[in-house]
Design a protein around this nucleic acid. Structure first.
Lengths: 195, 195
DNA sequence: ATTATGAATTGAACACAGTTCATAAGGAGC
DNA sequence: GCTCCTTATGAACTGTGTTCAATTCATAAT
C-alpha cells in the first residue's frame, strides 16, 4: 500500500489547515506561529514544510477557503434579495460587511498577506474576485443600461472597492471605529445616491 | 552647556527620520531594518532606542510627516479646483490617488503599521483625518443641503473610504492592477453618479 | 587643571521568529 | 529478514527587534 504516506500527508495537511484557520480567526494572522501549529497537529516542526512550501502557502490555502465562504455568503444574500437593483447592491454589500465583521481576522488575512514583489495573485483569488464582480455587474446593467461594457466594468470595480474601503476603515477600531449600523447606513447612503 | 546632549540626540533623531523615510519610500515598510538605519546614521544599534521607544515609534514619526504631506497635497489641489462641488470632490480624490501612487510605499506605511490591540490611533492621525473629512464635507453640504449633520458626516466618511478603497485595490498590482487613467476614471464615475 | 559623579552610549548578547538539513525512523520489494 | 530508498524529525542556522552590563563622556566641584 503506497498510499499510506499520501494519506498521512493529506491528513496532516487538513489538520494544519483547520488549526491555522482557527488560530488566525482567534488571534489574527500576525500571531500565527509555526511552532504552535506543530504542537496543535502533534507533528514535528519540519513536517509543516513537507506538506506546505512555507507558512505563506498554508495561509494562502486558508485564504482560499475564506474567500469561497465569503463568495458564498454574498451569493446567498443575493439569492434572498428583492428584484430591485439598488436593493441588490445594498444587500450584497451589507453581506460583505457582515462577513468581514463576523470573521474579521480571516477576512483581514485575505489582504494582509503579502506576496513577493512581482508575483501575481493566485488564480483562485482572481477567479473569486471575478465572481464578486459578476454579482455586482448585473444590477449595474439594469441601473445604467447606457454604459458601454468597459465603463460598466470600471464602475463595478469602483463600487466593489468602495464597499471594501468603507468596511476596511469602518472595522478598524483604532482609527475610525464606526458602529455596525452606521456602517450599513454608510453603504446604503452611497448606493442610494447612485443614479 | 547642557544642551550638548539634547542637540546630539535631536540631530540623531532627524537623521534617523530622514533615512527611515528614504528606506521606506524605496524598499517598503517591511524591508526597514534597525541595523540598516544604525549604519545609515553611523550610530550604535542601541542608539536608536535612546531616541525612539522602538522602531514603530520611528515609523509613526515618518507617518506623521507623510500624512501632513498628503493633507497638503489634497489642500493644494482643492485650492486650484473650480467652484463646482462635483469637480471639487473629483479633484481632491484624484489628488489623493496621485499622492498614493507617487509615494506608494510611504502611503502604504500609513495603514500597514499595526498598533498593539486596544491602542487607539495617535492624535495627529485622527486630526489629519478630520481635516480631510472637512475638505469633503463642504462640497457635500452644497450637493445635499437637506441631509442632517450626522447623515452628512456618514456620507463624508463613506466617500473618503470609497476613494481610499478604489486607490488601495487599484494600486495593488498583484491583485487588481488598474492603470492610472482608469483609476481616475473610476473615481470620477463614482462621483458623477452621485446625486 | 584635576577629579569625581552620574548620565549617555555602545554593541554583544538575548529572545524569538521561519526555515533547513544531517540524521533517524519507517516502509516497499525481494 | 534484509536492503534500500523515502519520509519524518528537531536541533541548528539565519535573521529579526530589543535589552542592558560595561564603557565612555560631559559636567561640576575642588
Amino acid at each position: 500500500m503506497s498510499g499510506k504516506v499520501a494519506a498521512r500527508r493529506a491528513a496532516l495537511r487538513d489538520t494544519l489547515i483547520v488549526n491555522a484557520e482557527r488560530r488566525i480567526a482567534s488571534n489574527g494572522l500576525k500571531n500565527l506561529r509555526a511552532r504552535d501549529l506543530a504542537k496543535d497537529a502533534n507533528c514535528a516542526l519540519g513536517a509543516i514544510y513537507n506538506v506546505f512550501g512555507d507558512l505563506d502557502d498554508l495561509v494562502l490555502t486558508v485564504n482560499a477557503r475564506t474567500f469561497r465562504h465569503l463568495g458564498a455568503a454574498v451569493a446567498e444574500a443575493l439569492s434572498d434579495a428583492p428584484q430591485d437593483a439598488h436593493a441588490q447592491l445594498i444587500v450584497m454589500s451589507q453581506a460583505y460587511h457582515a462577513f468581514a465583521a463576523r470573521h474579521y481576522n480571516l477576512w483581514r488575512a485575505l489582504f494582509d498577506i503579502e506576496r513577493p514583489p512581482g508575483e501575481t495573485a493566485p488564480d483562485w483569488y482572481l477567479a473569486e474576485m471575478d465572481q464578486l464582480f459578476t454579482y455586482i455587474d448585473a444590477p449595474l446593467s439594469v441601473l445604467f443600461p447606457d454604459h458601454d461594457a468597459e465603463t460598466r466594468a470600471l464602475l463595478t470595480r469602483a463600487l466593489f472597492s468602495s464597499v471594501h474601503g468603507i468596511v476596511l476603515l469602518g472595522l478598524d477600531e483604532a482609527s475610525a471605529g464606526v458602529p455596525a449600523p452606521h456602517l450599513d447606513k454608510m453603504i446604503s447612503l452611497v448606493f442610494s445616491h447612485l443614479t
